[in-house]
């Protein structure tokens, strides 16, 4: 019982992070209908920037935890957002009118570039960040106990905050209206005077920023990372996006939570060696049974 509860807690935090990354996939897919394969690697880049930001902040003698975390969040989100913008500008915008296959291959290329560039500049070894926030709340359940670290609470809090802000931006602001209009009909939106290229860029930046939030949180919690972390987590976040219905924002968050919970339960109760296999199999299963996901609209083919 305590294992189940503990895994539920772990799954909830993991899932909220998957949700954050899935937002990047789902928004990009929604607006230009492509899978941004480099998105997982954007997350990976943000993990490195997190470590670098913490190192720099401590180097400049800042020791207070709140300032470090806020500074790290700010720096990482800003720099990673710039990555999102440049990636779109370099690898996707020139291919706006190309075949889907070309865009996908370009995305794969971008993913390889990011991985190898980080590996070349930072080395192939695993890197780490010191544990900044310790302590936990414990509940006793039956014979055992369930532990919620403060870090996990922080993850939940910040990811909820991130999702909340994003939902507000998309639903209530002019920028969000432009995004939604472009998603519905890009040509029409541009006829109405929306600079759709700019909107698409913005979406990439937003996606990268959300991935950066996830990057900071996961890196602070797990401590260790290498240049290859983006690969697996990228596929999982994509699974979450598909599970929730690709193109749908609430779907990405919901899908992330469901995937995180089920994966944590699988790892805790059945086998942690095969938890990645479980997620991939889940992806294939969803695609067979319900390709439009939980909250997505079924795609109507244009004949």
């Amino acid at each position: 019982m305590d294992i189940v509860l503990q895994q539920l807690v772990n799954g909830l935090t993991l899932g909220s992070v998957y949700g954050l990354i899935a937002i990047g996939y789902t928004m990009v897919y929604g607006i230009i209908g492509m899978i941004n394969f480099a998105h997982g690697d954007v997350y990976m880049v943000s993990a490195y920037i997190t470590a670098i930001a913490i190192a720099l902040l401590t180097f400049f003698g800042i020791e207070s935890f709140p300032i470090i975390i806020i500074g790290t969040l700010f720096l990482t989100v800003a720099v990673t957002g710039a990555y999102g913008w440049v990636i779109e500008r370099v690898a996707y915008r020139p291919l706006r009118n190309s075949s889907r296959l070309s865009v996908l291959i370009s995305a794969i290329g971008m993913s390889l570039i990011l991985q190898n560039y980080v590996q070349l500049s930072q080395g192939a070894n695993q890197q780490g960040v010191p544990t900044l926030l310790t302590g936990a709340i414990r509940f006793s359940v039956g014979d055992g106990f369930v532990q919620i670290t403060y870090m996990k609470l922080l993850i939940l809090l910040i990811s909820l905050l991130g999702m909340g802000v994003l939902t507000y931006v998309i639903q209530k602001t002019k920028l969000g209206r432009m995004c939604r209009a472009t998603q519905q009909d890009r040509k029409m939106a541009s006829i109405l005077g929306i600079d759709t290229d700019k909107v698409i860029s913005t979406v990439f930046v937003i996606g990268a920023m959300m991935a950066a939030l996830a990057g900071v949180l996961i890196t602070l919690d797990y401590g260790a990372f290498d240049f290859y972390v983006g690969f697996i987590i990228g596929i999982k976040a994509f699974t979450a996006a598909v599970l929730g219905g690709i193109g749908s924002l609430p779907g990405a968050m919901l899908g992330g939570l469901i995937l995180g919970l089920s994966e944590a339960l699988f790892a805790g109760l059945i086998s942690s060696d095969y938890k990645d296999v479980f997620s991939f199999s889940l992806l294939v299963l969803i695609l067979i049974i319900r390709p439009s996901g939980l909250l997505g609209k079924p795609e109507v083919e244009k004949v």
């Binding site: 794969i108 290329g109 390889l112 570039i113 070349l120």
Partner: peptide
């Protein structure tokens, strides 16, 4: 890195 650049 070369492969990636090559693809793009």
């Amino acid at each position: 890195l070369m492969f990636g650049i090559l693809m793009v």
